Deep mutational scan, measured.
Amino acid sequence: MDLSALRVEEVQNVINAMQKILECPICLELIKEPVSTKCDHIFCKFCMLKLLNQKKGPSQCPLCKNDITKRSLQESTRFSQLVEELLKIICAFQLDTGLEYANSYNFAKKENNSPEHLKDEVSIIQSMGYRNRAKRLLQSEPENPSLQETSLSVQLSNLGTVRTLRTKQRIQPQKTSVYIELGSDSSEDTVNKATYCSVGDQELLQITPQGTRDEISLDSAKKAACEFSETDVTNTEHHQPSNNDLNTTEKRAAERHPEKYQGSSVSNLHVEPCGTNTHASSLQHENSSLLLTKDRMNVEKAEFCNKSKQPGLARSQHNRWAGSKETCNDRRTPSTEKKVDLNADPLCERKEWNKQKLPCSENPRDTEDVPWITLNSSIQKVNEWFSRSDELLGSDDSHDGESESNAKVADVLDVLNEVDEYSGSSEKIDLLASDPHEALICKSERVHSKSVESNIEDKIFGKTYRKKASLPNLSHVTENLIIGAFVTEPQIIQERPLTNKLKRKRRPTSGL
């Protein structure tokens, strides 16, 4: 017993010596996670971090007073192994002897410093981030199933929210409404489509400006004509009531908005009720001829604005009016007729031209339509002016008669200019590109209106002035400009410049 007691005391002394060697000089306990400095002193990692955080910048070693920084600290694995072995020896000594260790306080702390507990403390002390800490805590505590279930439920809930957000973003663009038309193969669909197009076009005519009305009406008319041609002859009974509906809707729209509806009346003529396609083609032919005449008058307007600064050229074209007008009339009417003589009366030419125009518009179905009313009214106005011209010709002399006839021709041009508003800008460009020769010939008609105004002003003063002067240069210039014009009389060319000069002198006297 005595020997055993001596041996136990010796073992205890050895353990105490080893414990003092492996103590931390700051906390005076076994080193936890030993860290060595540049001066080869060993301290606990937790104690050194606490010391360095007390001051900004480098701190001093507690043993040798040298500078220490966080970067200079290094882990010493050898001392950590020695500490672990010492703890194992102490545990074995207690089991063999059955005696508690003399320094129970220190031993209890040593026992608490088992490797499992050290790992837990290291995970908390090290600044490795929240995710690494959570992982280490889960690994160190596998015995708690409640914690695992809560963490898994949190992760699953987070994943569910992310997935639901993604699915919502994908589903939202798919919620856009999609309209699908289910059509049938019955023959009544074509008639319904035609009526739908006509009503939609009328609404567009009321909303859209004048520049786009003609294009819309032309497209709708083409669509309706194609649909009529596709149907068989057996379905004509269905077409006639639908066309009557079209007429009623167009008349109502014309009564409500007459000014807006006139812009599309000329282009919509071939959508009118037709028994066969031949009647629609004839109407299209007549409309094309009318559009040609209207576009020519538009060309004359532009030329008149350009040549208004040259009064000499405008005056020299006075007698070329009849010849150029004959050529335009021959090209406007498709019928083959002989040219009228140069010395014939211009009023007779106008009456013949009106007689040619009237039969074209005397179809029984055309008179029933609303768009032809505008053309009939313009023709009636022309006839009224010609009836007035006959009365004026009986009273005035030959020279005054010529000037009045020219004035009436200008009035006719004004009437025809009203129809110019109905034609589109695209048709003007096509006419100029296809028929430049006709445009040059028809330019002379509009330029002549300037000389007509001068004659009217001469009649106000009650006299006409003449001068025997020749202007050969002007006649040559005008002959080169206009290709299809005829030779003019030299006496009238000489008379016109004198009248304008005298007018300039006598205007201030009349004002006084």
Score class of each variant (00 low, 15 high):
residue 18 M to T: 00
residue 155 Q to I: 12
residue 5 A to T: 14
residue 66 N to M: 06
residue 77 T to E: 11
residue 164 T to M: 14
residue 75 E to S: 05
residue 57 G to Q: 03
residue 142 P to M: 02
residue 98 G to E: 01
residue 123 S to T: 07
residue 124 I to K: 08
residue 88 K to V: 09
residue 122 V to P: 06
residue 133 R to E: 08
residue 161 T to E: 11
residue 95 L to M: 10
residue 147 L to W: 09
residue 172 Q to W: 04
residue 50 K to L: 14
residue 95 L to R: 04
residue 100 E to L: 09
residue 169 Q to K: 14
residue 156 L to N: 15
residue 80 S to E: 07
residue 77 T to D: 02
residue 47 C to R: 01
residue 92 A to R: 00
residue 93 F to R: 00
residue 162 V to A: 09
residue 93 F to T: 03
residue 130 Y to I: 04
residue 165 L to E: 13
residue 107 F to S: 02
residue 107 F to E: 06
residue 174 Q to E: 05
residue 149 E to M: 03
residue 159 L to S: 14
residue 174 Q to Y: 01
residue 28 L to R: 14
residue 140 S to D: 10
residue 171 I to M: 04
residue 102 A to L: 06
residue 3 L to S: 12
residue 142 P to Y: 14
residue 141 E to P: 11
residue 127 S to L: 05
residue 30 L to S: 05
residue 150 T to Q: 12
residue 40 D to T: 03
residue 154 V to Y: 15
residue 178 V to D: 05
residue 165 L to P: 12
residue 29 E to L: 13
residue 162 V to P: 07
residue 7 R to S: 02
residue 90 I to M: 15
residue 85 E to I: 05
residue 3 L to P: 10
residue 151 S to P: 13
residue 80 S to G: 12
residue 92 A to W: 01
residue 160 G to R: 11
residue 61 C to L: 00
residue 52 L to C: 06
residue 135 K to L: 10
residue 4 S to T: 06
residue 133 R to P: 07
residue 138 L to P: 03
residue 107 F to K: 14
residue 93 F to M: 00
residue 166 R to Y: 13
residue 52 L to T: 05
residue 144 N to K: 09
residue 99 L to G: 04
residue 58 P to Q: 13
residue 176 T to K: 01
residue 162 V to M: 04
residue 154 V to M: 04
residue 18 M to A: 02
residue 92 A to M: 03
residue 178 V to I: 06
residue 52 L to W: 03
residue 67 D to Y: 03
residue 17 A to T: 08
residue 174 Q to I: 10
residue 20 K to L: 15
residue 131 R to E: 11
residue 178 V to P: 05
residue 5 A to G: 12
residue 160 G to D: 06
residue 11 V to P: 01
residue 173 P to V: 06
residue 157 S to T: 06
residue 105 Y to C: 06
residue 113 N to P: 09
residue 60 Q to S: 14
residue 148 Q to L: 08
residue 79 F to M: 08
residue 106 N to G: 09
residue 100 E to A: 05
